[in-house]
Every structure is written in structure tokens, then in C-alpha cells.
């Protein structure tokens, strides 16, 4: 019987970078793109099961699409206990959103400093090439520095949005397998 493992995925980033767009797009399997900007109050909660390839197991992603506005930070951090994975989003046309990525990463990691969990750094709005300020090199450097994986996507063009989620799901699954092995090792 297929096993279901559940992961708590926190999506963070500055206001207006495209977190809600990415989450909604991913949840609706690439059909729904929110054209108008809706300020996320607090956090939006969404669930999406992801099938791990070559297995029958599914990873249910419980996504907490957090608000980016500073006002909500304290409120939002309450949702962040026991995260399984995190996605940090920034906007390539906004230098500030890129520089605050580190801040977000720190905030999330401070919730559970002992346990390492997989994360992804996502550069959104790559369709606006002319307004692009942050280059992929800078993004990759930051990702390497903070131990995340770098992904570029465009929620508007529905391009490459699923990749970080799939990657994180498979990582989590691997983690699970490792743990199970570890558990087995104790009694074997």
C-alpha cells in the first residue's frame, strides 16, 4: 500500500515577490494564476500531494504561504514551528527582496536550529527580463552560501514553478528513508 508522508513547507519572502502566485499555481496544477495582487493576510494554507517518481508513495505538502509584509512577521512566525522544508522566494526585479532573503532564512531556521531541513531559493518573475536586476549568478551564490538549492521560475509564464516543490518532496522522502534505516539500525 502506498505510504503517505507529510511535510510542512513554509513559503517565505518579501511582500509582492510572488509567493501566493507560486503556491496557487502549484496547487492548481498550473491552471490558476492570480493576475491581481491580493495581499496575503497572515498565512494561506494549502495542501498538495506529490507522487514520488518510481515509487507509489506520496508526499503531502502542507504549504504555509506566509505574508511578506513586516507587520505580519510576528504573527506568521507562530506558524513556523516544526517546519519540514522551506522555500524562500525573491523577485529578480527587486534588489531589496533579494537582500532580505538571508533575513527570512535566518528567521525560519531560528525556529528549529538543530535540525537541518531541505530548502530552496526561488527567483521569480524571470519573464520581466528588461527589468531584471539580480542575476542568476548572485542567486546561485546566495543559495550555495545558505545551503539551499537555486531555482528560477516565472509564475506568470507558468514556467518551472513545480520544479522546486518536486525537488523538495523527493529530498524529504529521501530523508524519511534515511530515518527509517536509522531506526532499523538500532534494533538490528
Amino acid at each position: 500500500m502506498p505510504a503517505v508522508i507529510r511535510a510542512k513547507c513554509i513559503v517565505v519572502g518579501d511582500a509582492g515577490v510572488g509567493k501566493s502566485a507560486i503556491c496557487q499555481l502549484f496547487t492548481s496544477d498550473g491552471s490558476h494564476f492570480p493576475k491581481n495582487y491580493t495581499l496575503t493576510m497572515g498565512a494561506e494554507f494549502m495542501v498538495k500531494p506529490v507522487v514520488i517518481p518510481d515509487t507509489q508513495d506520496t508526499v503531502e505538502m502542507y504549504m504555509y504561504d506566509s505574508a511578506g509584509k513586516e507587520i505580519f512577521t510576528d504573527m506568521v512566525m507562530k506558524f513556523w514551528d516544526h517546519p519540514s522544508m522551506m522555500i524562500v522566494v525573491y523577485d529578480v526585479t527587486s534588489e531589496t527582496s533579494f537582500s532580505s532573503c538571508e533575513k527570512w532564512i535566518e528567521r525560519v531556521r531560528s525556529q528549529k536550529p538543530d535540525v537541518p531541513f531541505p530548502g530552496a531559493l526561488v527567483a521569480n518573475k524571470i519573464d520581466l527580463e528588461q527589468r531584471r536586476i539580480v542575476g542568476p549568478k548572485a542567486g546561485k551564490e546566495l543559495a550555495m552560501k545558505t545551503g539551499l538549492d537555486y531555482y528560477e521560475c516565472s509564475a506568470k509564464e507558468m514556467q518551472n514553478v513545480d520544479t522546486p516543490f518536486y525537488f523538495l518532496a523527493s529530498e524529504y522522502y529521501k530523508l524519511y528513508q534515511e530515518k527509517v534505516e536509522l531506526f532499523k539500525a538500532f534494533v538490528a
Binding site: 505510504a3 508522508i5 510542512k8 519540514s84 524519511y176 527509517v180 531506526f183 534494533v187
Partner: peptide
């Protein structure tokens, strides 16, 4: 690793949580 592993009286079987 079903929950029954906890009450089967054996030490080498276990029940795992799935996250969260």
C-alpha cells in the same frame, strides 16, 4: 511500519511518524 508494531511486544519493530 504500522502502529501495531508498538503493541506487538517486540523491540525490533517500530512505528514511524510521517512528518509533522
Amino acid at each position: 511500519y504500522p502502529p501495531e508494531n508498538m503493541i506487538d511486544g517486540k523491540d525490533d519493530t517500530f512505528w514511524t511518524t510521517c512528518g509533522l
